[in-house]
Amino acid sequence: MIEFHLDVRSGVSPYLQVVQQVRQALRLGLLREGDQLPTVKDVVARLAINPNTVLKAYRELEHDGLVAARPGVGTFVTRTLADASLAAHGPLRQDLRRWLAKARLAGLDDESIEALFMTTFRTAAQENIA
């Protein structure tokens, strides 16, 4: 069982924070297949957040095939993220290193690289949502 926490100042909506914390736990192996997520009532009573927020987060996780709700029992982890993506990390890191070298060659300093990466990342993420 994991415990959620909420950072209101982060600018990330509460439901996304819940989703991210579950994914993080899955990725780090804190949650395994068959583990139960806290009930909506428990999360709500602990964090003082809206039940619909938790439901929405759980629905999204269910939609992603990570968890499954068993009516009257609870929500359980059906898949872990730990190994699925780890294998892909190596090649991606290689690509990124090559891109960073190119950026430095073009004369960008650390801050410029970070700003460029973040704006591109956000724009891409938004286009995906849209």
Binding site: V40, K41, V44, A45, R46, A48, N50, P51, V54
Partner: peptide
């Protein structure tokens, strides 16, 4: 304040 809101949200969930 937090306690009141926690209880309120729990009741909403329940």
């Amino acid at each position: 304040r937090r306690e009141v809101l926690q209880d309120l949200m729990e009741a909403v969930a329940e």
